[in-house]
Design a binder for these strands. Structure first.
Length: 579
DNA sequence: GCCGTTTTCGGCCCGACTGTTTTCAGTCG
């Protein structure tokens, strides 16, 4: 009997492809390959990771090179990975280098050059042998390394083991309040002239690592001392005249930089990032004879430096319109800012209603009245009460409908809709009969079980739910939980197609650990013409505030007000609904 | 390896910090 090589049954996911190219880049770097080649693999990995469609399929169709950063060579490698599950280039490097060396290279303070040297000179080929060598003080024998390096390595290795699932990044929703408080305190200190959040928080990335703050001050050391002395600071990591790094009792790491007023704009631009955005911005500037740094824009020929007190002046000097931070990921925003086609992004104030929330009629903690009043206080004009259908059997749905009618009398300023959230079962059917759904004002349908089925089945479950004439919107369409659970294996293009064909809306669920649709999916969905609903899925009163997280995600997905269904009055929403 | 207002070759962002060095390589963001 002939042994047939294992062929992967399903195509590799984008995240899997990205990991392979990151590993390839790491191994090539250890092997001393050309730095630009590595950068190309890493750039491609980032592009693949954030793509909204399966890049493996794209490559098989010969269309992957449409993504910037992916050329013929990498496309061929994606095809190879899809067909054989591996890369010859990777196999070759694995033969040449010990498998543990990549981990050694990732120890903070070490890098590819040092890792390679440790292996060649001391035989270090894993974290274990690195620890042994450091403990035996053998690292200091190498040129360029000393006692300090040994100390640093041992400290890094003794740090609590980081589980692979723990990416070290915190949910945006868990830090936003703390960042705002820090900004307010700095403003209130009287020591700062201007203060701003920066970094990934300002870009509203769904997860963040460090919390960056920028300020100007007449007396910078007084301001850094002020931050270091806050009562919520548990540890002062670094504290100099213009910079302080502190860790709060909650474990959040704040980084404050105090800068001269005349370069505030350049520094804010620089520290907001993203790295990819800045690299692309600077590359294009170089072609125009300009050199951009955090201190200003240098005209190479004349030697003159343009300093910008405001961020929009930096962009203007380089020929761009000001770019909203949420778009600064090198996803086409520079081109759009140059030719005047940046989208007018949706804003929190545009949203008129919240079409997905729960009460204590199912698994919510707030009462119907508490949730409605809280929504009204937050400026919503309509809400859809969408308790789980499985908790509303045996006449409870009718009772809730009466309770909603009674509440409407008491809260005439809020339109309270009798909605429902139905489960999409394994066979694609819903857990409430059609005649009941026909009587609801608003129907959300979501998958809550059977996440790990094959791609075809999960896709078909969603498609058949969308084909139901009473289903208005699909809740948390990909099912991912950030840092905890990957999305279902879906043919997202097919889902989009069905959403457009059937007129079913797709949700951006604003729960901090869902944010589902994610940014790239939301962008693809809106471009395809699907209606997007941003909702909180709130289970308690304070979760109604999460709407801004959903709006941030929508903005990262380039969405305009027009593309967001609930940026309309309920009357207008009804005209867009299929039923 | 990718890419093009320097278009199919020759470029590819910029600066700070660290630990180790007497001028810098490596690492980091």
């Amino acid at each position: 009997m002939r042994i047939i090589a294992a062929v992967p049954q399903t195509l590799p996911r984008n995240a899997e492809l990205a990991e392979r190219f990151e590993l390839l880049a790491d191994l090539l770097e250890l092997d001393g390959a050309d730095a630009f080649r590595l950068a190309a693999y890493r750039r491609a990995a980032a592009r693949i990771r954030e793509a909204a469609v399966p890049v493996a399929q794209l490559a098989l169709d010969g269309k992957a090179t449409r993504l910037s950063g992916i050329g013929g060579t990498i496309e061929a490698k994606i095809v190879e990975l899809s067909e054989t599950g591996d890369l010859q280039a990777l196999a070759k490097l694995r033969d040449k280098l010990p498998s543990g060396l990549v981990e050694v290279m990732h120890v903070p303070g070490l890098g590819p050059k040092t890792a390679r040297k440790l292996w060649e000179e001391l035989g270090v080929d894993s974290l274990d042998s690195l620890r042994a060598a450091a403990e035996q003080e053998r690292l200091r024998a190498l040129p360029g390394l000393g006692a300090k390096t040994e100390e640093k390595v041992l400290k890094a290795l003794s740090a609590p083991a980081r589980r692979s699932a723990d990416t070290g990044r915190t949910l945006l929703g868990r830090v936003l309040g703390a960042v705002r408080q820090a900004v307010e305190e700095i403003e209130g200190s009287g020591l700062a002239d201007r203060v701003s959040e920066a970094g990934s928080v300002r870009r509203r990335r769904e997860t963040v690592r460090d919390l960056d703050l920028i300020a100007t001050a007449a007396d910078p050391p007084a301001l850094t001392a002020f931050l270091a002395g806050r009562p919520w600071v548990a540890e002062v990591v670094a504290h100099g005249p213009t910079k302080a790094t502190v860790v709060s009792h909650e474990g959040l790491r704040f980084d404050l930089r105090v800068v001269p007023p005349e370069s505030y704009g350049s520094l804010l631009q620089h520290f907001t990032g993203s790295k990819h955005h800045n690299v692309a911005l600077r590359e294009e500037a170089v072609r125009r004879g300009l050199s951009v740094s955090e201190y200003g824009v240098l005209e190479t020929e004349s030697g003159e430096t343009f300093q910008a007190a405001d961020e929009d002046a930096v962009y203007a000097r380089l020929g761009y319109a000001w770019i909203p931070p949420e778009l600064r990921e090198n996803g086409g925003e520079l081109e759009a800012a140059r030719n005047g086609s940046l989208p007018a992004l949706v804003e929190l104030a545009d949203l008129q209603g919240d079409l997905h929330m729960h009460t204590d009629w199912s698994d919510g903690r707030g009462t119907l009245e508490e949730m409605a009043v809280a929504a009204l206080e937050r400026g919503r004009r309509y809400v859809a009460i969408c308790d789980h259908a499985r908790r509303l059997r045996d006449g409870r749905l009718e009772q809730q409908t009466e309770a909603i009618a009674a509440l409407r009398e008491r809260l005439p300023k809020l339109e309270i809709l009798g909605g429902i959230e139905v489960d999409i079962r394994a066979d694609g059917s819903l857990d409430m009969p059609d005649d009941v759904l026909a009587g609801r004002d608003w129907v959300m349908a979501s998958i809550h079980s059977g996440f790990d089925g094959p791609r075809e089945r999960l896709t078909e479950r969603l498609v058949s739910a969308m084909e139901n004439p009473h289903v208005d919107c699909i809740g948390h369409p990909t099912g991912r939980k950030i840092n905890r659970r990957p999305p279902y294996d879906l043919d997202f293009e097919r889902v989009l197609e069905a959403a457009v064909e059937t007129g079913t809306f797709l949700e951006i669920n604003a729960q901090p650990d869902r944010l589902d649709l994610m940014d790239s999916h939301a962008r693809a969905a809106a471009e395809a013409g699907a209606g997007i609903v941003i909702s909180t899925d709130a289970h308690r009163v304070h979760e109604l505030d999460n709407l801004e997280l959903g709006v941030a995600q929508a903005r990262r997905g380039w969405l305009t007000k027009d593309q967001v269904v609930n940026a309309r009055s309920w009357k207008q929403v009804r005209k867009l609904m299929k039923s």
